[in-house]
Simulated assay, not measured.
Amino acid sequence: SSTASSASTAQCCSLSVPQAPDKPEMLSGSLTTHVLNTATGLPAAGLALRLTQLGEPGEQWTELAQRWTDADGRCLPLLPPGQAEAGTYKLRFETAAYWKSLGYSSFYPFVEVVFTITDPAQKLHVPLLISPYSYTTYRGS
């Protein structure tokens, strides 16, 4: 009986150990994002976004990447490793089109998150939490 119990415990424990996701391309970028729909508690799939960089000097923005979120609310890295430079960047999330695709209207037609990269070697993650009438962002890890 104790042998069966030990085997059962060992099998249970080996099955419950979480494994790293098999998506290295999603995790290895120097700039990534993740969008969650807080109205449903689910990832925001199919949301269009773009990354631009502010040119120095002046106010000219240059588009660097355009993506759509996958079923998990994530997309391929916006800046692959080694491509980031120190400077000011803007992530624009097309929230009105996303909410319209779900049959809702949105108070915010888009969300722009402007941030500064001071250490290009550091991995940056910019999550966005959205609902039709609010949004929240923060510097993630």
Rank of each mutant, 00 (worst) to 15 (best):
F107K: 15
T33Y: 01
G87E: 10
P77F: 01
G87V: 11
P80S: 10
P77I: 05
P43R: 07
A96I: 05
L78T: 01
Y98H: 08
V111K: 01
A45G: 07
E56A: 14
A71R: 13
L42Q: 15
P81A: 13
G87W: 12
P109N: 10
S106A: 15
F110Y: 13
F107C: 10
T40P: 10
E85M: 14
T62I: 09
E94S: 11
L49D: 00
C75N: 04
G55T: 14
G29E: 07
W61E: 10
P57S: 11
Y104K: 15
R67V: 02
V111N: 03
G46Q: 10
L47Y: 01
V126M: 14
L42V: 07
E112R: 02
G58N: 11
T88S: 08
V114H: 03
G29K: 05
A86W: 09
T52D: 13
T88D: 04
G82P: 07
S105M: 14
L27Q: 13
E59A: 09
H125V: 15
I117C: 08
L78K: 03
P109A: 03
F115H: 03
H34E: 12
A97N: 13
Q66M: 05
D72V: 02
T40E: 13
T33G: 04
P120A: 03
D72N: 09
T95K: 04
E112Q: 12
H34N: 11
S106D: 12
L36P: 01
P120G: 03
T62D: 07
Y104V: 14
Q60H: 12
E56I: 13
L49N: 00
H34K: 09
P43H: 02
T32N: 12
K90H: 03
G82E: 10
E94M: 10
L76M: 04
L42T: 11
R92M: 08
I117W: 03
Q60D: 13
A96P: 05
E59Y: 10
L54Q: 11
A65T: 04
S28C: 11
A45N: 08
L36I: 13
E59T: 14
